[in-house]
């Protein structure tokens, strides 16, 4: 499991954004992504978690033309450009939905709940929506 570098003086706090909701049915996923993109401009230690139905946000091949909503799954690809590199997906959530890392739009770190739990416990701020 990844260890955090605590030496950088610019690292003030560890922020974790937790996504547990599917896209489109409600606006939470989209607006949470908007927070993450803004948060990336601050010199903080950011991680983004997808678990429970939140893993559906990252599903490949989303086509929203028939529902008239913006397909924001394409934006996840920009996270890396924004410097957001700690993207965690809970393995148990993927397994329960018959998904694997290959079904997702971006490369992520798939973690077992017990390992994700350790990272969660080290945060300073946890934001969920």
């Amino acid at each position: 499991m990844e260890e955090y570098d605590e030496s950088g003086p610019e690292v003030v706090k560890r922020f974790m954004y937790v996504n547990r909701r599917a896209p489109y049915g409600t606006i939470y996923a989209l607006e949470c992504l908007e927070v993450v993109l803004v948060a990336a401009a601050f010199d903080q230690d950011i991680s983004v978690v997808f678990m429970d139905d939140g893993v559906y946000q990252l599903k490949k091949n989303q086509d929203t033309t028939g529902i008239g909503m913006k397909n924001f799954s394409k934006t996840f690809g920009a996270l890396e450009d924004y410097g957001v590199e700690k993207i965690y997906v809970e393995k148990e959530s993927l397994d329960a939905r018959g998904l694997s890392a290959g079904d997702l739009v971006i490369p992520v770190e798939v973690l077992a709940a017990v390992d994700l739990s350790e990272i969660m416990a080290r945060q300073d701020v946890v934001i969920s929506s």
């Binding site: 706090k13 803004v38 934001i127």
Partner: peptide, 11 residues
Amino acid sequence: SGLGQLVEAGI
């Protein structure tokens, strides 16, 4: 105001 105010509140 902007979303930055939320991040700043967290900080």
